[in-house]
């Protein structure tokens, strides 16, 4: 039977958390699509999903959440059996965008709309958990010298992969 390293288990866990996030954001997107203008929905998250901040150019923001979780899930699963700097950079960028939007929307919910949507909060918490695990993985893998987003995205290169024998699988 094939055995996995600690890092591979962590990638599995990241993929699992992303799967949960994908389910939550898919449900939120369905709620958002079904939201009838000028009505009160019995399915919850009414005030948040009816607010002007819930959509960007007519597209529900939760759909963006679906994309972020989808990308992280697929790429995390791909990392179980391969090492790829580019896909790691994409994961980091997705987390960075997802967390930025998530923090902004949570602020809007608490201080502007003054109503909390349990699904939005769940999604934000799942993304936060994912961010922490991914930073732990990257620290363990020692692929990146620093975690400054611009440095990771634009300056680091694949030379570090072969330089670190721990990363060979």
């Amino acid at each position: 039977m094939r055995s996995f390293t600690k890092i591979q288990y962590l990638w599995f866990f990241t993929a699992f958390i992303s799967l949960l996030g994908l389910v939550v954001t898919t449900y939120l997107t369905i709620l958002s699509i079904g939201q009838i203008e000028a009505s009160c929905s019995i399915q919850g998250c009414n005030e948040v999903l009816n607010s002007k901040w819930s959509k960007l150019l007519g597209i529900p923001l939760s759909f963006g959440g679906m994309l972020v979780y989808g990308i992280i899930m697929i790429l995390s699963l791909s990392h179980i059996s391969s090492i790829n700097i580019l896909t790691r950079k994409i994961i980091l960028l997705s987390i960075f965008i997802g967390m930025s939007v998530s923090v902004y929307l949570t602020y809007i919910e608490i201080f502007v709309i003054k109503a909390l949507c349990q699904y939005c909060i769940t999604s934000a918490i799942l993304l936060l958990i994912n961010s922490i695990i991914i930073i732990i993985i990257f620290k363990k893998e020692k692929l990146f010298i620093s975690f400054h987003i611009w440095q990771v995205l634009f300056l680091e290169d694949e030379a570090k992969v072969s330089a670190n024998p721990q990363n060979q699988r």
Binding site: A15, L19, L22, T29, I30, M66, M73, L77, S78, S81
Partner: peptide, 23 residues
């Protein structure tokens, strides 16, 4: 696109495609 060849990634892709189909 080598990463697409492994079965875990394929599983992830299938799950994601199902979510998009539901939407």
């Amino acid at each position: 696109m080598d990463f697409l060849k492994n079965k875990f990634t394929l599983f992830g892709l299938i799950v994601f495609t199902i979510s998009i189909l539901i939407i």
